[in-house]
């Protein structure tokens, strides 16, 4: 009956005329009203979706399940300094740093790139999309020295900087769960950073966001990222400098605005 709490069947026959328009957007258009207010069905659908989104924020990442998706390819599991979800939500600073045990576990070698799959604010996004995205990148990166995948929990974007530094990787690709919305709880964000270091500003990153079944698809995202990675290697940088060199079609949103604040998930 409902998908993420969004009504599939209109509540009123008179609203059927909106049905063709609903094919154009997943936005909650043509809801109809009682007086000025939303109808009961729509109010309940909204609240149900909100409940599901909140559950997506709080569900833990199934690390073993992700390892199984890798079919034996090497991977590492690290944790941030945020001990639990409640701390994670209030203390983004702790989510940006590796806990001591994890830091000691990482060995320094020479890699062109390390991919990190982090829970961020939606473990469901990471669970669903991160490994397929990682696998989609493999054929596009022939000749690259790719480090074992790192799975990071209670983590935010910047934890990738410390991981890359510790492992000796020149580029880090952070694949992280974006904050769930009502319609989409499984959206993945990708952040690319050249020569990352602890304390590296977000303006030195490039971002692809909204990677999910109804947004940017994995093959499209993967080919955009491959282009960005090749250019990052050629120019020796990421961030605004790379953005300026990019053809428009390749670009994700990488200039900061208030609306980007918590894509730093």
């Amino acid at each position: 009956m409902t998908e993420h709490g969004k009504p599939v069947v209109p509540t009123n026959a008179a609203l059927d005329e909106w049905q063709p328009l609903r094919g154009l957007t997943r936005a909650r258009i043509g809801l109809g009203r009682s007086g000025n207010a939303q109808r009961t069905t729509d109010v309940l659908a909204f609240q149900a979706a909100h409940a599901q989104a909140r559950d997506a924020v709080h569900a833990p990442l199934d690390v073993q399940g992700m390892e199984r998706q890798l079919h034996g390819a090497p991977c590492l599991h690290v944790q941030s300094r945020a001990a639990d979800r409640a701390t994670y939500l209030r203390r983004p600073d702790l989510g940006r740093r590796l806990c001591e045990d994890s830091l000691h576990m990482l060995r320094k070698e020479e890699w062109d790139v390390v991919f990190v799959a982090a829970d961020g604010l939606s473990s469901i996004a990471t669970q669903t999309n991160a490994i397929p995205f990682f696998q989609a990148m493999q054929p596009l990166l022939r000749g690259w020295r790719i480090a074992p995948l790192v799975i990071a929990t209670q983590s935010r974007v910047a934890i990738g900087d410390e991981i890359a530094q510790a492992m000796g990787a020149r580029l880090v690709v952070m694949m992280i769960g974006e904050r769930p919305g009502l319609s989409v709880a499984d959206s993945l964000g990708i952040y690319l950073t050249y020569a990352p270091y602890v304390g590296c500003p977000d303006s030195l990153r490039n971002c692809l966001s909204n990677i999910h079944a109804h947004g940017m698809t994995i093959p499209v995202g993967a080919s955009k990222l491959a282009w960005l990675m090749q250019e990052a290697e050629r120019l020796g940088l990421t961030g605004v400098g790379l953005k300026d060199a990019a053809p428009d079609k390749v670009l994700g949103k990488n200039t900061l605005s208030l609306h980007d604040k918590d894509t730093d998930a």
Partner: peptide, 13 residues
């Protein structure tokens, strides 16, 4: 205002 209070791009209400 956004349709149904649900912004499907920025993922917030």
């Amino acid at each position: 205002g956004v349709p149904g209070a649900d912004d499907i791009m920025l993922n917030y209400q």
